[in-house]
């Protein structure tokens, strides 16, 4: 492919990590780099996933030691490995915003990031904001303003909305709409989403 005729992406033996490199080989070849290497020795017995790597994500205030496939996105890690399914997959390419979570307090598209890139970082998902019996003010405002319909993009909308209140924004409806445009709501509940955000902004509750 392209300039790189030797790369054979469909080689069945090409696993998550090239065996030929290994950790020691990499360490010699690449001074100053730490190859994140899977280890057979510490692989949990019974794990079905080969070539996984140990990382720790701090999710919603709790350290989660995990073993992940290097290819696993932060989104799939949260949903399929950690089984926190409030964060949604809508496009898997950063084009809808349904997967929005906070990393170290900033909103990002978790679908375009590898879980491995976030070892030791602080992740907040919708479940970390509040539960039905103790909703975060933004969650409560979304209910009060009917700022959703089907609810599928809602987690991402709320994660964006909460982050937005701490971002540079003049507070006008127009600015809020622009800064919420990375979260597509196909049901079109946009006016009510703005209503919920402005309600929380005016209340000063966060």
């Amino acid at each position: 492919m392209g300039d790189n005729p030797e790369a054979n992406p469909t080689d069945p033996n090409r696993r998550a990590f090239l065996r030929s490199l290994g950790s020691s080989a990499a360490a010699v070849a690449v001074a100053g780099c730490s190859t994140v290497t899977p280890s057979n020795a510490d692989r949990q017995s019974g794990s079905r996933i080969e070539d996984t790597v140990s990382i720790t994500l701090r999710i919603n205030g709790k350290d989660r030691p995990l073993r992940v496939d290097p290819r696993t996105t932060l989104l799939d890690c949260i949903r399929e490995v950690v089984a926190l399914t409030g964060t949604k997959k809508g496009c898997d390419h950063g084009q809808c915003g349904a997967c929005t979570v906070h990393v170290n307090g900033r909103r990002v598209n978790s679908c375009l990031s590898l879980a491995l890139m976030h070892d030791g970082e602080e992740i907040t998902t919708i479940e970390g904001l509040g539960a039905p019996e103790a909703l975060h003010p933004m969650q409560a405002a979304f209910v009060a303003c009917d700022a959703y319909q089907c609810g599928y993009c809602t987690s991402g909308q709320i994660m964006s909305a909460v982050a937005l209140l701490k971002e540079p924004c003049d507070g006008s409806d127009a600015a809020v709409k622009e800064l919420m445009s990375g979260n597509i709501c196909r049901c079109g509940a946009y006016a009510n989403i703005v209503c919920a955000i402005q309600k929380v902004r005016k209340s000063g509750s966060i």
């Binding site: 300039d3 696993r15 990590f17 001074a31 100053g32 780099c33």
Partner: peptide, 27 residues
Amino acid sequence: KTFEFIRAADLKGAIEGAARAKTAQQG
């Protein structure tokens, strides 16, 4: 496709690691 994930600790290491590549362009 699978890949080796390398966390660069310093510039030199990152550059040496990438210098192995046949191209820095497409592919």
